[in-house]
């Protein structure tokens, strides 16, 4: 009997299983266990959370394999890890380690000034960030099985994630009003096959799972992204940079499930202690969202 592994279908399939869930950044086994216990549907294994990467500066790279392995051993939920934009060897290393999903991420320092990773070459699925429809479609065309908004990572400020979701929505709405000629022109501008643009127009949404990421710090932030139509949320620095990570992690998971139920969001938002301090976008020296081509 023929068995097919690593197909695009099973890559998309794992992304579909993550929907309605919260993916949490963790830097060690202990945090991974806290995240799993709180109900995270996956964890992102990192050496430093984005807020620390931002603060400490320097070149941010793929995590030490020992760290990734430690986290993989600690939990039964899927483990994701980040590689630098375009760094296909870091991706080969993570695939060899057996991580369940690779995030080709602007949070790390980009490694290729011209192109992103050819993700079709891998058996492991990829998630990539996007700030607009063209970026999302280029990543999908390269083989990404999941898209997330870039937002502005490490700021605890949700405004950029909201901006990216709204922008992508508006652009999809605009596609619906276009004729064949205009669609072809749009596809050219996006640098993707017209077939992909036609598919988005027909579906009225991205053809892959689309999570929110970048700046989500509270249960209400998470629920807002869900009400705006995202399929789930990533929370990076927002949990382990807050006063009471366990409680906050649980509350964000609850709010993501019951995103249409303000009574429950109110209940779980009580007494969470201080959220991460956060930053105004205008005060940033560098915007991570501008990385990627």
């Amino acid at each position: 009997m023929e068995v097919v592994k690593g197909s695009y279908k099973v890559k998309l399939g794992l992304a579909q299983m993550l929907k309605g869930g919260v993916i949490m950044d963790v830097t060690n086994a202990e945090q991974a266990k806290i995240a799993e216990k709180a109900g995270a549907c996956a964890v992102m294994a990192l050496e430093r959370v984005p807020a620390d990467i931002r603060k400490e500066g320097g070149v941010a790279r793929m995590a030490d394999p020992i760290k990734v392995k430690e986290i993989m051993r600690a939990v039964s939920i899927p483990v994701m890890a980040k590689v630098r934009i375009g760094h296909f060897v870091e991706a080969q290393v993570l695939e060899a380690l057996g991580v369940d999903f690779i995030d080709e991420s602007e949070v790390l320092t980009p490694a290729d000034p011209f192109q992103h990773i050819d993700k079709h070459k891998f058996k492991v699925p990829f998630v990539c960030g996007a700030t607009n429809l063209g970026e999302a479609l280029r990543r999908i065309n390269e083989g990404a099985a999941m898209i997330r908004t870039k937002g502005e990572a490490g700021t605890g400020n949700v405004i950029e994630a909201v901006r990216h979701v709204r922008l992508i929505k508006q652009e999809i709405e605009a596609l619906k009003k276009m004729n064949a000629k205009q669609l072809a022109k749009e596809a050219k501008e996006y640098r993707v096959p017209v077939k992909l643009v036609q598919q988005v127009r027909m579906l009225g949404r991205l053809p892959v799972v689309n999570f929110a990421a970048g700046g989500i710090a509270t249960p209400s932030d998470a629920a807002m992204m869900m009400q705006l139509g995202c399929d789930g949320v990533f929370v990076g620095s927002g949990i382990f940079k807050s006063a009471e990570p366990e409680k906050r992690a649980r509350a964000i998971v609850e709010a993501t499930t019951h995103y249409n139920n303000p009574e429950i969001i109110a209940e779980v938002s009580e007494n969470l202690g201080e959220a991460m301090k956060g930053q105004d976008i205008a005060e940033l020296k560098e915007r991570l969202q501008e990385r990627g081509w």
């Binding site: 009997m1 023929e2 068995v3 097919v4 592994k5 690593g6 197909s7 279908k9 099973v10 399939g13 794992l14 299983m17 993989m72 899927p78 695939e95 057996g98 991580v99 369940d100 999903f101 058996k123 492991v124 699925p125």
Partner: peptide, 25 residues
């Protein structure tokens, strides 16, 4: 792990034709 997720045709009792099984982790 995920790299071992797979697709395979399944024989199902009572179905004349196989069913396409998608197994994710």
């Amino acid at each position: 792990r995920q790299i071992d997720s797979f697709e395979a045709e399944l024989k199902v009792k009572g179905f004349p034709k196989p069913f396409h099984g998608v197994f994710i982790r």
